[in-house]
Design a protein around this nucleic acid. Structure first.
Length: 322
DNA sequence: GTACGGCCTCTGTC
DNA sequence: AGACAGAGGCCGT
């Protein structure tokens, strides 16, 4: 199959939803470390795997355009709904930005150049296993690792211009006796034991349905269950709660957020290291500041922080060239 | 309850 | 070029 860049080339294969840029910015959300499965396949077009199919997404004129490969006949109301649920488009972002900004001048300042940053509603298995891989790691390497994970353990879906696309692996694909060794061979390091161990623990314990059921239990309980899995601590559990389990008040606290709290908010919460109590205190601080969707606001701040770092690196590169 | 070292490997930086 | 620190942490002590 051939990659489809834009609706104008083959309009019959594309559909669209109303979606202004203030509500969603693909270029800010998809590469910023919430998900590791989307690539900018050509300028402004994002190709990735969602719900067991390969999609290309594109924003034009206040609409979100999409095409699904291989399932052309199936594209319709169901794919509209899947996409709306993935991006949680029923949540009005502009109103939230206004409220967060009114409560917090620092948010207003940071968010000014980063509209349309929203939290995705991801598959719990994919989110859980992916974020186990994020410890002591960078987005660039995580992305490459997840890519290899899918190629090695995931079902092949199709080729686009000779490039293969794979589904995210099933839990059972990762419970084999040799899974850990294979993951190590793929460069997962000490995370290999955690990924295979969590796959096994979920399979033999609460099950996929039990994992999905965490969407219906309180945040504190979901967090407690997740933290019992190998390789899952406070930070990873909060990421999964926020991005897959409908806990909008979960605030993942990592070294970046901790630094922001100290430098920008001038707070010394939780002492010298990121102890469980520090996680709790910092999370409570942001929930008090931003309210019940504090995790969403944190995603905006994180995105702004990420780009600030990239911009600094970029200006240094330009300095070197001149 | 907190503090610390170790862990795999890679990337960015000097 | 080659070393080196630090990376969206977690676990055992």
């Amino acid at each position: 199959m051939k990659l489809r860049d834009t609706p104008s080339a083959s309009p019959a294969l594309w559909r669209s939803l109303p979606c202004p840029a203030a509500e969603l910015r693909l270029d800010l959300v998809l590469p910023s470390g919430q998900t590791f499965r989307w690539r900018e396949s050509s300028p402004g077009s994002w190709t990735g795997v969602l719900g067991g199919h390969v999609w290309t997404l594109r924003q034009e004129r206040d609409r979100l355009w999409y095409t699904v490969y291989g399932g052309e006949a199936a594209a319709g109301a169901d794919t509209d709904r899947l996409l709306r649920e993935y991006f949680q488009l029923d949540v009005g972002l502009q109103e939230l930005y206004r409220a967060w900004g009114a409560a917090d001048p620092l948010f207003r300042e940071a968010a000014k150049d980063f509209p349309g940053v929203r939290v995705l509603r991801q598959d719990p298995v994919e989110c859980l296993l992916s974020f186990i891989c994020t410890s002591n790691n960078h987005i660039s390497r995580i992305t490459a690792m997840i890519d290899r994970l899918c190629q090695a353990f995931g079902r092949r879906l199709c080729h686009l211009d000779a490039q293969p696309f794979h589904a995210f692996p099933s839990l059972t694909a990762l419970t084999g006796a040799d899974a850990e060794a294979r993951l190590r061979a793929l460069g997962f390091g000490y995370r290999a034991k955690f990924v295979s161990g969590t796959a096994r623990a979920v399979t033999e314990g609460l099950g996929i349905e039990g994992l999905h059921h965490l969407r219906a239990v309180p945040y504190a309980e979901a967090r407690r269950v997740l933290c019992a899995l190998p390789g899952v601590g406070s930070k990873v559990a909060d990421c999964v709660c926020l991005m897959a389990l409908d806990k909008a008040d979960a605030v993942p606290v990592d070294t970046h957020v901790w630094r922001i709290v100290r430098q920008r908010y001038g707070l010394e919460l939780g002492g010298r290291s990121l102890t469980p109590r520090a996680h709790q205190e910092i999370g409570d601080f942001f929930r008090g500041l931003w309210g019940p969707r504090a995790g969403w606001a944190q995603a905006v701040l994180f995105c702004a922080d990420l780009h600030k770092g990239r911009d600094l690196a970029g200006s240094r590169d330009r300095d070197k060239e001149s």
